[in-house]
Amino acid sequence: MTTDHPAQILLLEGADATAFAQAQFSSNVQSLGVGRWQFGAWLDAQGRVLTLFHLARLADDTLLLLLRGGDAAAMAQSLQRFAFRSKVKLSVPEPRSLGAGPAVETYAVHREGDAYVFGCGDHSMTVGTTQPDDAWRLPQVRMGWPWLPHDVPGKLLPQSLSLERLEAVAFDKGCYPGQEIVARLHYRGGLKRHMHCVVLSQHVTEGTVLHRNGENGIQLLDVVTDDATVIALAVIDDGLVSAIENTSDLDTDEGVSLRVTESWPA
């Protein structure tokens, strides 16, 4: 099966690559060792997620971002505005094939020829594979690793995507775009939308918003089919989740019913 998710990658190279990434991204980049990756995000000033990615350190002065949705060239162009006087080069290689591989320790990354292998525990993701496939999608949906559809960036806060659980957000490393709002939600609470794994009654295009009684309560992210079962990650209003728990299944205005199989905190 040909993958629907070509690997969009962005390279940061130079003496200031780490400092630049530390100031722009939500994760603690300085703690990342060579040969390791972490989840990270780039937020707007309101704390909403513009891009989500695997951030790998290939060398002391080289970082590679594997985007989980979005366009690497557009991201690089936007980031370039903040690189003034920094010794960092941003480059965007051509999108490459993405496929699943054998089990590799989670957060490990290494090169195999011209390919990059990202360890994900019971499987791996190979950027630049000669055998592209989507076999990595189902286990990652079940693990709660979101992939952002094209119309979702700039709409959701990190806590809605469970990015704290994935250690993609740091609160003790100083300022970065959106940090104040994200920290306020972390310490004071108040967020009323969270991510869940759901089973759908039929296939729905990823990125679709489902409604109940005319309200925009269910934002679908990645949607995959396992045999005849349709499984998805969905950001759902907490009030609707309570309704689902009380009725087992929730019917939407679009005629799609869903059942929550797993939920994650911020």
Rank of each mutant, 00 (worst) to 15 (best):
residue 126 T to V: 15
residue 35 G to K: 07
residue 178 G to T: 07
residue 1 M to P: 07
residue 260 V to W: 03
residue 94 E to I: 09
residue 249 D to P: 01
residue 223 V to E: 00
residue 58 L to K: 07
residue 44 D to A: 01
residue 120 C to A: 11
residue 248 S to E: 15
residue 7 A to R: 04
residue 71 D to T: 05
residue 16 D to W: 11
residue 99 G to F: 00
residue 8 Q to F: 02
residue 158 P to D: 08
residue 161 L to P: 09
residue 2 T to G: 00
residue 57 R to E: 00
residue 22 Q to T: 04
residue 16 D to N: 13
residue 175 C to T: 06
residue 244 I to S: 11
residue 259 R to E: 05
residue 215 E to Y: 06
residue 24 Q to A: 01
residue 131 Q to S: 10
residue 123 H to K: 09
residue 179 Q to L: 05
residue 80 Q to R: 13
residue 6 P to R: 10
residue 183 A to T: 13
residue 210 L to V: 02
residue 21 A to M: 06
residue 49 V to I: 02
residue 252 T to V: 11
residue 255 G to N: 04
residue 77 Q to T: 12
residue 93 P to C: 02
residue 227 D to I: 13
residue 222 D to R: 12
residue 78 S to M: 13
residue 224 V to T: 13
residue 200 L to P: 00
residue 223 V to W: 01
residue 122 D to R: 06
residue 65 L to Q: 01
residue 234 A to C: 05
residue 236 I to V: 14
residue 124 S to H: 08
residue 134 D to V: 08
residue 197 C to W: 10
residue 67 L to V: 12
residue 194 H to C: 02
residue 79 L to G: 04
residue 39 F to N: 08
residue 98 L to K: 10
residue 188 R to V: 02
residue 41 A to M: 06
residue 182 V to A: 00
residue 110 H to N: 08
residue 261 T to A: 07
